[in-house]
Amino acid sequence: MLDFITIGFLATLVGAAWRLATPLIFTSIGEVISERAGVLNIGLEGTMLMGAFCGFAATFASGSILLGLGSGIVAGMAFGLIFAFFTITVKANQIVVGAAINLLGMGLTAFLFRTYYVSTGRGVDIAPPIAIPYLSDIPFLGEALFRQNMIVYSTILVTLLAAVLLYRTSFGLTLRAVGDHPKAVDVAGRSVAAYRYGAVLIGTGLAGLGGAFLTLGHSNQFVEGITSGRGFIALAVVVFARWSPTGAFFVSLMFGLFYALQLQLQAQPMLNIPYQVFQALPYVMTVIALVMVGGKNASPRKLGIAYDGR
């Protein structure tokens, strides 16, 4: 019964896992940076939707994928600015503002999409796969891993940049301190608010990029609710990755694998299991992951708490 598990099946699975993990990688790494500065942004789902929609709209109008990706980032940051203003400047509760951002993202994208695009029915040309010379010639594995589009490849770059930023720069050091002991940063003469704004903008910019990938690198269309909970899964990824960018990369890959497995298993007619079971897999894993990590806590000490130094 399990004879559908061939080398070809596995290779496709791995390749698909990376592709499906890509939006999670961007978004969760962004959230790692935000949470390390003490800001818990649960508004990722809405932010990703904005990125997905604006990326799609910009590419639809201009035909340029780069412009679309840029618009996705800017749209994410615009939402980030709203979030930051209310949570950092006004010091409103981060969870409440995050929830509002989600509702805003869902409502606004649905409204704009229905108003302007739903009748066109046309999609955009998604980013083309680029075969990496030599590597892509490796049988099976090369085929699966090294014929991705540039957005997928760039996840590695983003992960490395985030790790360097967080652990090897003065900015990153201060950022981590802001999430743990903001007063110490204040006393050292740096603005806690400025660092938190910075962290939120980086975080939401990446969430916007993660969303834009969905419409420009994965499917070629915007659909209402296209993110289907990835913004929330990214939050779980951050916890499971213990607030580390490289951790977020690998945990996202693991979730990507679940998505891929789910898709591939659905396509196996001889498995007599309702497809909903597979669809639930990533979400079930999220819950399991959170429970497993629950006990030991590595979270930034001031996560979710506004700083009122002066």
Binding site: T169, A177, D180, H181, A184, V185, V187, G189, R301
Partner: peptide, 24 residues
């Protein structure tokens, strides 16, 4: 005013230097 999860040295350089320069 010490950040608990950083080292002594990291605490000392906290807030000093140009933000985006690499600490090497």
């Amino acid at each position: 005013m010490l950040v608990p999860n950083l080292t002594v040295a990291e605490n000392y350089v906290l807030g000093q230097g140009t933000p985006l320069r690499l600490i090497n």
